[in-house]
Simulated scan of single mutants.
Amino acid sequence: MALPWYIRILRPVNAVMAGIASLLGVIVATGTIPPMSLLLVPVVFLITGAGNAVNDYYDRDIDAVNRPDRPIPRGEVTPEGAFRYSLLLFVGGVLLATLASPACLGIAVLNSLVLVLYARNLKRLPLAGNLAVAYFSGSIFLFGGAYAGVEGLLLNIPVAGITFLCMTSREILKDAEDIEGDRIGGAHTLPMITGVRNAAALAFLLALCAVIVSYLPIFPWWGAVYVGAITVADVIILAGAALSLRCSDPSCVRASNATGILKNGMFLALAILIASALLL
């Protein structure tokens, strides 16, 4: 009976999506998906799943308030079992990365360390935790690009930058939603210090910066068709972030669905970037 919960603690849907996202980095770098690059998917899946498991271990008190349906608060997985499980997954992901490239191995090791530091320390520091999550999200594209060498990694920097800015914006808003549970768990997030309204303003500014980067003529596929398509995604991103500007309390941010709309806009923007790379 415990096995499904050990699968659930990985957040398997998110982990699979992260693995597939690494292939998008390969596409940006090469315009195709070489068969051997499929190895990147299980590497990212294992490391992402490990990060989710170790995060649940360190967040078990907070999750008892904010996410009582997760495996540890429900008593379906012990904290010690989740921690050992995460270590096993980290080791498996890093070992598998040795079959890719030295650059991929380096990123795999760095990201494993960042995920542990995030769960243990950074998440409870204002803004630092948000930046760590955003870095990991953006680095998935760098990981895919690194499979094709330094040039492939460089081609993915703008895509990673847009992802980093959007994710930082969304993570700040998620913290604004979770102030009550974070306070009980002893976290000190940015919205707790600045207030929800100021945090929402910063989130909007970061989303605006992501939109500006998306318009810069730094992409090989930059042109009228790309600009027209990316404008649709950018409008959704800015609309999502703008919904939170009127909020001064966590319940308002949750009711606005700003984080969900912002996520949808970001996914659409990434889809447009990848489609542009394929068409090029």
Rank of each mutant, 00 (worst) to 15 (best):
I7D: 13
I7R: 12
I9E: 07
L10C: 03
A21Q: 11
I27W: 09
T32G: 15
I33Y: 13
P35F: 14
L39K: 08
V43H: 13
F45E: 14
T48E: 12
A50G: 15
G51H: 09
D56P: 12
I62R: 05
V65T: 11
N66S: 09
N66H: 04
R67S: 15
R70T: 05
P71L: 08
P71A: 12
P71W: 11
P73H: 04
E76Y: 11
V77W: 08
G81V: 02
Y85K: 09
T98G: 13
L99S: 14
C104P: 06
L105H: 02
L110K: 05
A119V: 07
R120N: 09
L122K: 10
R124E: 04
A134P: 06
Y135E: 06
G138H: 07
I140G: 04
F141D: 02
L142C: 07
A146G: 00
Y147M: 05
L153V: 06
L153P: 03
L153N: 03
V159W: 08
M167L: 14
R170V: 01
D178L: 00
I184P: 02
G185N: 01
L190C: 00
V196D: 02
R197S: 09
A199C: 04
L202C: 01
A203V: 04
P217T: 05
F219G: 11
Y226W: 00
A233C: 02
V235H: 10
I237K: 01
G240D: 02
A241Q: 01
L243T: 13
S244N: 06
S244R: 07
R246K: 14
S248H: 15
P250G: 01
S251N: 06
S256K: 10
N257Y: 11
I261P: 09
G265H: 13
M266N: 05
L268P: 07
L270C: 07
I272C: 10
I274G: 14
S276A: 15
L278I: 15
